[in-house]
């Protein structure tokens, strides 16, 4: 069956509805919420603070430490077992690597900046939502950054290249290919690229262009959310 129309009626290059808010965790140094479709991520930044065990300290620069966690009730019905698991460890690591190219912690040697990302509700694209929320929370915390990081998933569903897959599309019959990407739009750097499924060279090219366009739109929303916090509605 040809995939002529997306399951939720979106255009092939259309994002799910996006919402972003800054300052959702008042006790944290910086925090942000990022919602894309039914996926909701909340990020909180603590630090810089002293890093223990001391063997992990870097005497020339601070360390960024991310923690990704899906809440027990966040999934589609089954309870998510709490605590770290192989998947969350991996996503924590790729989130760090996605944010590290823009974050400059050279002024805080030996210390750690903790970023906690909690997924309240999940419906595909959680690591991307987490990265978007974390980038905003870091900016809100006043950590020096060369750029914001914006992130979105692209993929191939039923032979069509689509932007921002939903859970139904990821589980689409036959092959659905899912690529998580993150961009630093100003520098043009790709900071995250994870592919799950087969794809031809041309399709990948087309998908990445689509992802960049999606990230540009997301960056506008992130920027507006940061500015509106301080009463700038432009």
């Amino acid at each position: 069956m040809a995939y002529d129309k997306r399951l939720d009626g979106r255009k092939f290059d259309e994002l799910r509805p996006v919402e972003a808010k800054v300052g959702v965790v008042p006790r944290a140094v910086g925090s942000a919420m990022f919602k894309i479709g039914k996926t909701i991520a909340v990020a909180a930044v603590h630090g810089p603070r002293e890093l223990y065990p001391a063997a992990f300290q870097n005497p020339t620069s601070g360390v960024l430490r991310c923690n990704y966690n899906m809440m027990a009730f966040s999934g589609s019905g089954d309870r998510v077992r709490p605590g770290p698991n192989r998947r969350s460890k991996e996503i924590s690591m790729v989130m760090e690597k996605a944010l590290m190219p823009v974050v400059d912690l050279s002024a805080y040697p030996g210390s750690v900046v903790d970023v906690f990302v909690e997924l309240i509700q999940t419906d595909a694209g959680t690591r991307c939502a987490g990265i978007c929320a974390a980038a905003m929370a870091l900016a809100h915390a006043g950590i020096p950054m060369k750029d914001l990081v914006s992130s979105v998933a692209v993929g191939r569903v039923g032979g069509k290249i689509v932007l921002d897959l939903s859970k139904e599309e990821e589980d689409y019959e036959g092959h659905a290919t899912d690529i998580a990407t993150a961009f630093s739009i100003r520098t043009g750097q790709v900071t995250l690229l994870q592919m799950d499924g087969p794809l031809t060279r041309e399709e990948l090219k087309k998908a990445l262009e689509l992802a960049k366009k999606g990230c540009e739109d997301i960056k506008k929303i992130q920027t507006a959310a940061l500015k509106i916090k301080y009463g700038d509605s432009k």
């Binding site: 400059d104 805080y108 809100h140 006043g142 950590i143 750029d147 100003r186 301080y230």
Partner: peptide, 23 residues
């Protein structure tokens, strides 16, 4: 390019950003 969330402040040719938060 700004590296922080803040307010732009000009002093002659010098451009700086007054950060709104930070360590």
């Amino acid at each position: 390019v700004s590296t922080k969330l803040g307010m732009v402040s000009l002093n002659g040719r010098l451009v700086r950003v007054v950060a709104l938060n930070g360590p």
